[in-house]
Write a protein that binds this DNA or RNA. Structure first.
Lengths: 109, 109
DNA sequence: TATTTAATTAACAAACATGTTAATTAAATT
DNA sequence: AATTTAATTAACATGTTTGTTAATTAAATA
């Protein structure tokens, strides 16, 4: 598995995707704060965090009994870079679509 | 599963990721052209294509006995949009890293 | 130092993913 | 009309993922 496919695998789970989004908007948080015990057990969340960590998406910092997690910006950027590497493809294709829709509008007029 | 997590799930497999990359660079291709029989059977590839299709990443066009596949630019753009939505996060974080590295350089000088 | 707090690893069950070969579908060719 | 080509769906085995509860680890507090 490459860096990218592993990052995608990590983000393919709703729980993990939500964790990454939350850490990006709220910044560093302890494992406990990421857990809603009515939805999932602590061990289950702990393993999700491990998957995210192994994929390089988040990092862990220890503070006493707490494990503080945060998103690694490099990981997010490598995904952004990939989409940008192919930007000419989807941009050009969407331009053609825009042009097509515009010509439909013209036909209506 | 949301649109995005499903797209990530589809791209988390090496074979499917390679298919998407190939379709983006070479354009529309029949299922047969995407298959290397020394690596995988036709039914296996057929199912990978189905996963990509259900995730909205590719579309199928029928021409006689052939099934022609191509990437849906909207799907690629929705991933790009997500990374851009969080751009301020990873950009700012990386700027701080850049600043840190720059100050290290200064120390050396 | 005993207890509480925070989070992990271990063991296990259920569900899902992914490969195979065999069977099926449907259009094109002979 | 029979055969070939292109690709799919079906059936099944195996490995991985993801949840649970129980047990463990380790730091902080009483």
């Amino acid at each position: 598995m490459t860096i990218l496919t592993q990052a995608f695998a990590a983000l393919s789970d709703e729980t993990r995707f939500a964790v990454v989004e939350r850490l990006m908007s709220e910044g560093e948080l302890p494992a406990g704060a990421l857990l809603d015990p009515s939805r999932m057990s602590a061990p289950a969340m702990s393993r999700h965090l491990k998957v995210l960590r192994k994929a390089g998406l988040i990092k862990q910092r220890i503070d006493g009994t707490k494990r503080l997690y945060s998103v690694r910006p490099e990981a997010m950027q490598s995904i952004a870079d990939w989409t940008m590497d192919h930007r000419s493809f989807w941009e050009a294709s969407l331009d053609r679509l825009d042009a097509h829709l515009a010509s439909d509008e013209e036909t209506k007029t």
